[in-house]
């Protein structure tokens, strides 16, 4: 009996979560994700999923974009940490850290993906 109010609170929370979502969908009308709608639509269609509302397409595009963006962000942190470590250990005179150019390498991508539970192995050979 004592758990009932908690359940009610959860329901309330979900209701309030649902409200911004519809607002969010309205925002998607005039937001263009980096991945073009046509590309997302084609990949979805090849999986048998064909939403007619372009907003749903954009929702999925944004999810994918955020997925890649999070990975890239993680990889950037790894890259910075690695370069800082190497530069501090090798020479302290090099202080041009601000205008250093970053390259996304497999070395940084592998630990970033490992955090998401994706393990990357080097292919045994290239075709």
């Amino acid at each position: 009996m004592s758990q009932q109010p908690e359940k009610m609170e959860e329901d309330q929370l979900e209701l309030t979560l649902g409200q911004p979502l519809s607002d969010f969908l309205m925002q998607l009308e005039d937001y263009h994700p980096t991945i073009p709608d046509a590309v997302t639509g084609n990949i979805l269609r090849s999986s048998g999923f064909e939403p007619k509302d372009p907003r749903l397409l954009r929702l999925i595009s944004i999810a994918a974009q955020k997925f890649i963006s999070d990975i890239a962000n993680d990889a950037l942190h790894h890259c910075r940490a690695r370069t800082n470590n190497s530069s501090s250990s090798s020479s302290k005179s090099n202080k041009g850290t601000k205008d250093r150019r970053y390259c996304l390498t497999m070395e940084d991508l592998t630990p970033a993906l490992a955090e998401l539970g994706i393990t990357i192995r080097k292919p045994q050979y290239y075709v």
Partner: peptide, 9 residues
């Protein structure tokens, strides 16, 4: 996306 996140290459 990578460019936007601060990578150059």
């Amino acid at each position: 996306i990578c460019l936007g996140n601060g990578f150059d290459t």
